[in-house]
Write a protein that binds this DNA or RNA. Sequence first.
DNA 1: GCACAGGGCTC
DNA 2: GTGAGCCCTGTGCT
Length: 901
Amino acid sequence: MRDRFAGVTDTSRPRLLLIDGHSMAYRAFFALPVDKFSTTSGQHTNAVHGFISMLATLLRVEEPTHVAVAFDAGSTTFRTEALPSYKGTRDATPEPFKGQVPLIKEVLEAMHVRHLDKDNFEADDILATLSSQADALGMEVLVCSGDRDSLQFVNENVTVLYPVKGVSELARMTPDAVRTKYGVEPHQYPELAALVGETSDNLPGVPGVGPKTAAKWINQFGSLEQILDRAGEIKGKAGESLRDHLDVVRLNRQLNHLLTDVELPFGPDDLRVQPWDREAMSTVFDALQFRTLRERLFAMHPSADDDENAAPAVEVTVEDLAPGLLEAWFAEHDQRPLGLEVAGRPVPAGGDAWALAIADGPGSAVALDLTDLSAADDTALSDWLSDPTRAKVVHGGKSVWHELASRGYSLEGVVFDTELAAYLCFPDQRSYDLGDLAERHLHRELTPVDTSSDQGALDLSVGEDSEGGRLAVRAAALTDLAEVLRGELGDRSAEPLLTELELPLSAVLVHMERHGIAMDVDYLRELEQHFGELVTGAAASAYEVIGREVNLGSPKQLQEVLFDQLDMPKTKKIKTGYTTDAAALADLFVKTEHPFLKFLLDHRDSTRLRQTVEGLLKSVADDGRIHTTFQQTIAATGRLSSTEPNLQNIPIRTEAGRRIRRAFVVGDGYETLLTADYSQIEMRIMAHLSGDEGLIEAFRTGEDLHNYVGSRVFQVETSAVTPAMRSKIKAMSYGLAYGLSSFGLSNQLNIDVKEASKLMEDYFTRFGGVRTYLAGVVDEARANGYTATIMGRRRYLPDLTSDNRQRREMAERMALNAPIQGSAADIIKVAMLGVEKEIAVRGLRSRLLLQVHDELILEVGHGELEELTTLVREQMGSAADLLVPLDVSVGTGSSWHDAGH
DNA sequence: GCACAGGGCTC
DNA sequence: GTGAGCCCTGTGCT
């Protein structure tokens, strides 16, 4: 397949690649499965993916010096004016294809590839014009098009790349290839097509005349004109048919003639291949959720090698320090913040570090092998690291801390964290790799420049593979990157969020991760055994019912059992068939009462619980505790997340699940566990942000929120609010903060849409401020381009103005939710800082262990319970000044389960 | 070995 | 056709 691209290339001549955007995108659309390529928001991307992937291959294999993509402008052209039915069969553009062309254009713009269209003309005319101009300039031209009309301008300088299968396999249509395939010269192709017709353009030809006959006539008579003039000489049925369709042929020929004199804003010279705007590309690819493709493209062009705009190769001077001279180096460079980068394993309470680099910008850097450090240097390093007055810039300070801790170093004086700063500026990214940031914001590659033999400036082999050089280049980028990001933060008024919130919080998180939470391992093993038995039992019963053994964990096999073998009614459709999720199975059970479903659900539950227990057991460290990692830069709303293991999704809803919480226990040397959580913090924020008097009043009365709201909505006494009413109101209240529709509400509550609409209407009648607020949030976000939390944390939502309904509505729901979820995240972060600080001020041993979004879990030192309880209540309760009180409930116990409430 | 889909748990 | 996460298994691909 690659061979098809591997034509002979003349490296001295400029080579222009022209692409018919519409036809290739359309091909791509049909070549790739539409259901396999779409974003989580529902935008289809198969055509975009296929097109860009093809473009990438062409750029790599053909190495054009110039490139452009032409699109059809509108639905009318001079051709449709001449023949309204022209391309008439194409009007039914498939829905999932619509909207993908603008996305392709976005990517092209980011890649600095010119794209053009012109009213009244087709892409082919633009290509023909550019091609003939380029040919005249002596350029070699490659035209990539799925429209056979383009074959007419093939010559020894112009080759058409015609898709034979999908968009990855292209046939190289040289003059010889055209002759072989069609039996006519390239310039005669439109004459042949005029006779044969072109179904894709809805142009009928002469009935009974195919390509073979047409080619025979053209060769016999020399030209179409001659054929038409001498049509009378042609014998047989074909001749007769021709004579009946002379007008058709003339019109076809008129339509399939491509113009070579379209006026265009650019000439071939203006189409030089440009360096990419990697930042913009990343943004678009992030939005399209193209991970692999992005990597593939970026890997293709490891460096911007074009002369202008090229990333300047920054050489980092790595000083070859003799042992014992580190102190002196610090004395010379320690006046400004220094970049610090460490090589190691950033595992909480089990990390490692083997090398490190410190840099005063690119001018001077040192790289140190931590496994082989002189005593003097070790002291100098340790003093510098632990001195809060000596400023450091790091990338992901929490990891650095864990790494350094493994060698007994502490880290103080971090004044800037480039990862946290990038997160605050661009919270929707999934990762903030230092190399990517340097590339985007400094236009700098973080690969060590190999100056090899000459005095080996970078050849400082610390560890294998010149780790020292790599680290030094990264450390050297930190201070420069910090400057750029400081500016970005300033643009967003986000500096205080970094220095007063996230940066100090990262230190708190370090402590929490390092402490971990104690586990009752013996009890966990019992649970594992217990759940294991339940799994086996449920599986055996399920097999017995259906008379065979299947893998109950395989949705595919389950579908066979349910819908083929047992012939149950079909559930909601999913990509791979019909769903077998719990809601659907419960629904099926109501309908069929088939015992298999019961056992299957039991099996699911028990398997899940066993899995959770197994995962926890594997995560227990040598100290008998689990040290999760809190991700501080993942959730776009500002929340934390927890990984390895995730301790923020430990079961609580079912009794069986709650038993797992008993395994989280107070550690030796501590009195008890304490949990403190905000009650209804999101609704309180809703009340605050909306200023709705009714909702504010609800929180001030101290009445149960959902009962109170229910009594207003249903217009009954609070004592008359039934549990059913209360749960409807609860679902509704929380749904509102997520952008819930009446359809969604009806689904959730199993009521019809009409009733759901009525419920929403009644709700808004009583709490009109909420409706006004929610509508205002979206409007404001659309106008500003972002939402903001009470502390000014922004989330940018460009899709609010998208033409695509799915994307736009998704962005609207995000706009509704982000200020609420994000403000709650801000508040608990402030509370964590307050708790940590107050504990330190009072010299308590108690310590924070976990955060679960609106809940803190602490380990209480002996005799500190009372003081700590007060302290935690105070700090959490005063973390924000809202129009409603922040209510905190506290519980204690020797396990997480017992401390819960 | 990897990426994706389906499923399910939390707030 | 309600937001934000993490992680397991099965499956199909390379």
